[in-house]
């Protein structure tokens, strides 16, 4: 228990350092929030003009999908940030201090929650501008945003692991896109998963990304008169999402911490 408290306290110090960096180099935040806006606008107007979702409008359907995709893309920021840190002398400083061995990771994934909150805020505004609406109450909506953030947090830990396995920020981007594109496209993010052919349909239905999108859609009241999904994963999207979040954290937190200690000692 003392270890956890130490990890959180030291993690907060490291997170503060990461946030100061965002303040000093605001371009990082500006450019990374541009892409969500671009996604919202492009999908809404390009796909929105030709894709029809019976039972609701495409824009209503789309936004939750863009939210999920963007926070997942945003988690590569975690990996790239760590990979960048690992090339700097500051990691030696951290490792020679009596601080928690997981603080650098706790701090990085923690500061990225702020980063994801910013991009969700930007997308929400962009979504409202193109005609998307929250049709439920404040609490449901907050629940939807929390689900997104929680899932993004879990993915950050996967990316943290990736970021330390490779050790150049550029490789993180490329390596993770190979995984993120199929994960976010073979899902109900942009099209209805029940209309996909055979194996893709099964994959999409059990893909946790679909569950997160479904949970968000329901939380924002964007499901219109779409048929209620009959697969357990999508009929209970919040429960299914939480299960995945739990699995990812249980697997990747220890894995990442071990990799941090190993990677930092590897070269020197």
């Amino acid at each position: 228990m003392r270890n956890v408290a130490l990890a959180l306290a030291d993690g907060a110090v490291v997170a503060k350092r990461n946030l100061i960096k965002i303040k000093r180099v605001p371009e990082i935040l500006i450019f990374t929030t541009m892409s969500p806006i671009m996604f919202v606008v492009l999908f809404a107007y390009v796909f929105g003009s030709s894709i029809e979702i019976p039972g609701t409008t495409y824009r209503e359907y789309l936004i939750a999908g863009v939210f999920v995709q963007t926070v997942i893309f945003g988690s590569t920021f975690t990996g790239a940030g760590l990979a960048d840190d690992m090339t700097k002398g500051i990691i030696d400083r951290f490792r020679s201090l009596p601080m928690s061995r997981s603080a650098v990771l706790v701090g990085r994934t923690g500061s990225d929650i702020f980063y994801n909150m910013t991009s969700i805020l930007v997308m929400t505004i962009a979504g409202l501008v193109v005609g998307w609406r929250i049709r439920t109450g404040v609490f449901e909506a907050i629940g939807g945003f929390l689900t997104l953030l929680l899932f993004a947090y879990a993915i950050s830990w996967i990316m943290a692991f990736v970021g330390m396995k490779v050790s150049s920020p550029e490789v993180v981007q490329n390596a993770s896109f190979m995984f993120i594109f199929p994960m976010t496209f073979i899902a109900n993010t942009f099209v209805r998963s029940d209309l996909l052919p055979g194996p893709l349909k099964t994959f999409a239905e059990w893909n946790p990304v679909s569950a997160v999108a479904q949970a968000a859609r329901e939380a924002f009241g964007n499901t219109g008169s779409l048929p209620q999904p009959d697969v357990w994963s999508l009929a209970n999207p919040i429960a299914y999402t939480l299960i995945w979040v739990g699995i990812i954290l249980v697997v990747f937190i220890p894995l990442s911490v071990r990799q941090y200690n190993r990677a930092a000692g590897r070269t020197k």
Partner: peptide, 12 residues
């Protein structure tokens, strides 16, 4: 520890 690569954060 103080190393030959100044281990301080550039942005801070």
């Amino acid at each position: 520890l103080s190393g030959q690569n100044a281990a301080v954060d550039e942005h801070l």
